[in-house]
Computed example of a mutant assay.
Amino acid sequence: MNEPTRLSWTDVRDKIRARILSRTYGPGDKLPRDEDIAQEFGCARTTVHRAMQDLSQIGLVERKRKGGTHVRLDPVTRATFDIPITRREVEQRGSKYDYQLISRKMEQTPLPVMARFGIQRPVEMLRIKALHLADNCPYIFEDRWVDTRSNADILDADLIRESANEWLVRNKPYSRVDVRFYAMNAEGESAEYLSTREGTALFVIERTTWIGDDPITTVQAVAAPGYQLLAQG
């Protein structure tokens, strides 16, 4: 009779990570003790400890002596790509942050959005346009689509007080992100909201996230002239 295979530390890590992504353990939640997880999974406590070390290093959990292990308030954002909270980005540069919700309404997805998500038919999603400001000057103009089938609770979020960027980072862990960087010439809304002349070269960050196979959001974030992207390893 074959004995059951004991889990490796990577197996334990992946199981805990899956629970965080599915929000079995939500942001801020305290996880069970290492001893209790080891008993549940039938593995050694050292195996759980190694798994938790890795989850801490990639930014999913925070471990404190005598304080236990908690899911970070903004989990997963450093697991594959650091999705910044724009408010923090502005404040860390020493500027005063402000935010304006331009519009939020349900619309049918156009072909470019369908292509980003990899879906074959148009569906109705929440489209959010917003402007982030630094020292009362335009900083980033966002044109965002949110799939409310996997994010129904965003319909009740106060997006006048808190940006969709910050709400999603705090409330919607993701398992996959696609990121594109490119330049575009200012025109129409981008020129208007960023207070620049049409034809001005603008830097664009385009991000699309999923949880499993379910789309979460895709955003085209167009930065004002002079924007600098800082990456730290």
Results as ranks from 00 to 15, higher is better:
Arg121Phe: 08
Gly67Ala: 12
Ala224Phe: 08
Arg161Cys: 11
Asp29Tyr: 04
Arg87Gln: 15
Tyr139Met: 10
Leu73Lys: 15
His132Ala: 06
Glu35His: 14
Tyr99Trp: 12
Lys172His: 13
Asn2Asp: 15
Lys172Ser: 14
Phe141Glu: 01
Ala134Phe: 07
Asp82Arg: 10
Leu111Val: 09
Arg121Ile: 06
Leu202Glu: 00
Gln228Gly: 03
Thr10Met: 07
Ala18Leu: 04
Asp98Val: 03
Val61Tyr: 09
Lys64His: 14
Gly118Leu: 03
Ala221Gln: 07
Asp74Tyr: 14
Ala164Asp: 12
Val12Ala: 11
Leu31Tyr: 14
Ala152Pro: 04
Asp34Asn: 14
Asp214Met: 01
Ile20Thr: 06
Ala51Cys: 03
Ile216His: 13
Arg45Tyr: 11
Ile83Ser: 03
Leu194Glu: 00
Asp74Gly: 01
Phe81Pro: 07
Leu155Gln: 09
Thr47Met: 09
Asp98Cys: 08
Arg170Trp: 08
Lys15Ile: 06
Cys43Gln: 09
Pro84Glu: 15
Leu155Thr: 06
Thr24Arg: 02
Ser150Pro: 03
Ala18His: 05
Ala130Gln: 05
Trp210His: 12
Ala186Asn: 02
Lys66Gln: 13
Asp36Asn: 11
Gly94Leu: 14
Arg93Asp: 14
Val113Met: 00
Ser103Cys: 02
Leu101Gln: 03
Asp36Met: 06
Tyr139Ala: 15
Thr218Val: 01
Ala201Trp: 02
Gln57Arg: 15
Glu35Gln: 14
Thr5Arg: 07
Gln100Ile: 14
Val76His: 10
Asp11Arg: 05
Glu40Ile: 09
Ser22Met: 08
Leu202Cys: 00
Gly118Phe: 06
Lys105Leu: 13
Ser163Cys: 07
Gln39Ile: 12
Phe181Trp: 15
Trp210Met: 11
Ala191Tyr: 07
Leu55Ile: 13
Ala18Ile: 03
Met114His: 06
Gly26His: 04
Met114Gln: 13
Arg65Pro: 02
Met125Lys: 05
Leu60Val: 10
Phe117Glu: 04
Leu131Ser: 04
Arg6Trp: 03
Ala115Glu: 14
Arg19Lys: 03
Arg50Pro: 05
Val48Cys: 06
Asp82Leu: 11
Val219Ile: 05
Gly42Arg: 09
Asp54Met: 15
Asp213Ala: 02
Pro138Phe: 09
Ser190Ala: 07
Glu124Met: 01
Val48Asp: 10
